[in-house]
């Protein structure tokens, strides 16, 4: 692999990681803690959306994020010809 495509591969990886980690922080620190008061208007089973994110939603989102990232990287690996044979 040439140096140019190596750095392009890495840049693409860092970009998708950044996107995933923004979502990771948003659902846990954001919806679950800091922005909970803003979501208090959305009721869910006797409490509000922020509580749901803190005890259920963030964990479910984490799972989706990891599998999305794994799939995305499998495709990226093939595109750049760096997948394992």
């Amino acid at each position: 692999m040439s140096d140019k495509s190596a750095s392009a591969y890495w840049a693409a990886n860092v970009r998708i990681i950044t996107i995933c980690l923004v979502i990771w922080a948003l659902v846990s620190f954001g919806f679950g803690i800091i922005f909970r008061p803003l979501l208090s208007g959305i009721p869910i089973g006797g409490t509000d959306l922020g509580f749901w994110f803190a005890q259920q939603g963030s964990i479910l989102t984490f799972i989706v994020l990891i599998f999305f990232y794994a799939q995305y990287m499998n495709r990226l690996d093939r595109e750049f010809g760096v997948d394992e044979v």
């Binding site: 990771w24 846990s28 803190a54 963030s58 964990i59 984490f62 994020l65 990891i66």
Partner: peptide, 18 residues
Amino acid sequence: NSTFLMGWTGGYVLLAML
């Protein structure tokens, strides 16, 4: 104490990506 739930699961996202 939801902190334990998020804290002890969120680390796996970091593991998988970083």
